[in-house]
Structure formats: C-alpha cells, structure tokens
C-alpha cells in the first residue's frame, strides 16, 4: 500500500472507529451506567440509518422518502425514531429482569430486520438504499471524519456529565440495588426507561452517521454479529461503566478486528473462504477470555466523587483523622 492508500485507510479506520465509539458510549449509558441489558443494538442502529437515509436521500420511485434534506435533519429523525422504538419496547419490558430484556431486545432487532426486508416500498427491501449523500455533499473524507469526531466528543461530554449528575447517581443506585433505590422513593422503572431510550437514540445517531459515511445500506449490514456483538466486546474490553474505557475499548477492538483480516489472509486455501467465520470465532474467544480474566475491563469503573463535600473539606477530614 502506498502513502495515499495508508492515508485513505487511516481516515476510513478512524471514521468507522468513531461511529462504533458513539455506539459503545450509548451502550455504556444503558448497560454500564444503568444495568439495562440491550442485545438489540443492531436494531436501533438500523432504524437510525434508515430514518436518516430516507430523509437525506434523493427521491426514488422505488421506495418512500428521499426528501434530500440536510444531514442534521436526518440525524434528528434517526434519534427520534430510534428513541421512539426503544420507548415502545421499553415501556413493555423494562421492568423485567435482565434475561427477559435481553431476549426482548434481541427479538426486536430481528423483527426490525424483517420489516426492513419485507416492506420494500418504504425501505427498498433486500436491495437496500443507495446514493445516500455524504455531509454537505462533500467529496472530502475529512468532513465526515470531523462530524463523527464531533459526535464522539459531544456524546462523551454528555455521558460523563450524566454519570456524575443526580440522574446518573440514581441509575447507578438502581443498578447496584434496585430495592434500595425503590425504598429511597426513586421511580425505578422510569429511570431505567429513560436510560434505555437515551442510549437507543444515540445508537440511532450512529446509524445516521454510518448511512451517510458508507452511502449504501441494506438489511445485511445490520446482522447482530457486527451491530451488536462487536459493540459489547468493545465496551466489556474497555471497561463497562467507564466512558474513557468505552472509547479505548472501541479503538483497540476495532484495531484487532480490522487487522485480524490480515491474519485470516494467511490461512490455507480452504479456510481462507471462511475468513469471516474464523474472525468471529477469535473475537468470541477474546470476549470469553476477558470475561474470565478481567471482567472489569482495561479501565474499571470509578465512582464519581461524593456530593456535599468539596475536595478541601474532605482533605480536612483526612487530616483530622491522621
């Protein structure tokens, strides 16, 4: 690969990592902060991608939509639609224990894929949607990268604010001990639902960015392996509950995933055609090892500082005790 190739690949790599980063941060709001188990990430990602693509794409007689609106409208539509889907499914299932929520979210993701496949008059069906414009119709890849990085930074800032806010404290409390949170008068179901909907909305945002970046979407792109499983590996590897961890985990796992294709290229002839399966096997094994050896991830969760005591007074207390 020449230098230009490296440059283009580097930009592609960073943009994709950024989109995954948005999803990992979103999952961290749901799982890391609140203990809400979502196995349907791919579904919310898909809803966002389609909502945005239909808003921003050019008109096409084959399917609905194609309003050629700017990307920001697509993003808003993506977040609203994904959030709405999450609200409907969450209102029904959020009070159940994790196992049932996991099954329900996995189910909704499969059904979203079925709807996309079969309602071709709206979604383009199995052929997918083509010609989704890049931001500002710009050919410059850096524009897309900049927008993705802005999204990552803004979401990181929001997620970290949320973590130390009273809202985040309640969610952490619910995660650690639901009964105690309820006894403290917190409306547990509502808090969990809020975290679920907010996270899903940001997964929709990631979908909008993805659609605009790749320019083509089809139901095949939203299988649970890529949309859901990789994000989980990224968050767990980085450290669930830790936003820095979520981003570092995203970067590292995406690096491993991308370069594992170099490894699978070395496989003998017969296995080379199964490269995708070999990679999934390896990344699955990686997750198992992390779960067994270091379940807290590279960057374990840190409790936010206690409120009501400034750093200074805490220092005073320590001095008194010493």
């Amino acid at each position: 690969m020449n230098y230009l190739g490296f440059y283009h690949y580097g930009i592609y790599f960073l943009t994709t990592a950024g989109i995954f980063g948005v999803m990992a941060l979103a999952l961290n709001i749901q799982w890391g902060l609140s203990g809400v188990f979502n196995l349907g990430i791919a579904g919310f990602f898909a809803v966002g991608a389609y909502a945005s693509a239909l808003m921003t794409g050019a008109p096409d007689p084959e399917h609905w939509g194609g309003f050629a609106l700017p990307l920001i409208v697509g993003i808003v539509a993506a977040m609203l639609t994904s959030g709405l889907v999450a609200f409907v499914i969450g209102a029904a299932t959020i009070r159940l224990r994790s196992d049932y929520l996991a099954i329900a979210t996995l189910g909704i993701a499969e059904i979203i894929r079925l709807v996309i496949k079969n309602e071709g008059e709206i979604t383009g069906g199995v052929r997918g949607l083509t010609g989704i414009p890049s931001p500002f119709n710009s050919d410059n890849q850096l524009v897309m990268l900049a927008i993705v990085l802005i999204a990552v930074v803004v979401l990181y800032w929001l997620a970290d604010r949320a973590r130390i806010s009273p809202w985040g404290r309640v969610l952490r409390g619910i995660r650690e001990n639901e009964d105690a949170a309820m006894a403290a008068g917190k409306y547990v179901t509502r808090f969990r639902l809020e975290a679920f909907v907010v996270g899903a909305a940001f997964m929709g945002l990631a979908g909008a960015l993805y659609a605009s970046f790749i320019g083509f979407i089809s139901p095949e792109a939203f299988k649970p392996v890529y949309g859901t499983f990789l994000i989980w590996v990224m968050l767990i590897a980085g450290g669930s509950g830790n936003n820095v961890g979520a981003l570092v985990g995203t970067f590292l796992v995406w690096l491993v995933w991308s370069f594992s294709s170099l490894l699978t290229d070395l496989l003998p002839g017969g296995l080379a055609t199964q490269a995708g399966a070999v990679r999934i096997l390896l990344i699955g094994l990686l997750l198992q090892v992390i779960l067994l050896a270091r379940p807290e991830g590279l960057f374990p969760e840190k409790s936010p500082p206690l409120i009501g005591r400034s750093r200074k007074t805490r220092g005073d207390i320590q001095q008194k005790h010493s």
């Binding site: 188990f37 994790s98 392996v225 499983f229 989980w232 399966a277 096997l281 699955g284 997750l287």
Partner: peptide, 23 residues
C-alpha cells in the same frame, strides 16, 4: 461472579459455535 455476565458469555458462545459449524 455475576449471573448477568453469563448472558454475554452465552451470546459469545452462540456466535463461536455458529462460526465453528461454518468452518
């Protein structure tokens, strides 16, 4: 450790088994 981690582990196992069958 935590029962809920079993869910993630079994999800990973599912994908590994499927990949193995395909290989």
């Amino acid at each position: 450790v935590a029962p809920v981690i079993l869910l993630i582990s079994s999800f990973a196992t599912a994908l590994m088994l499927r990949a193995l069958v395909q290989i």
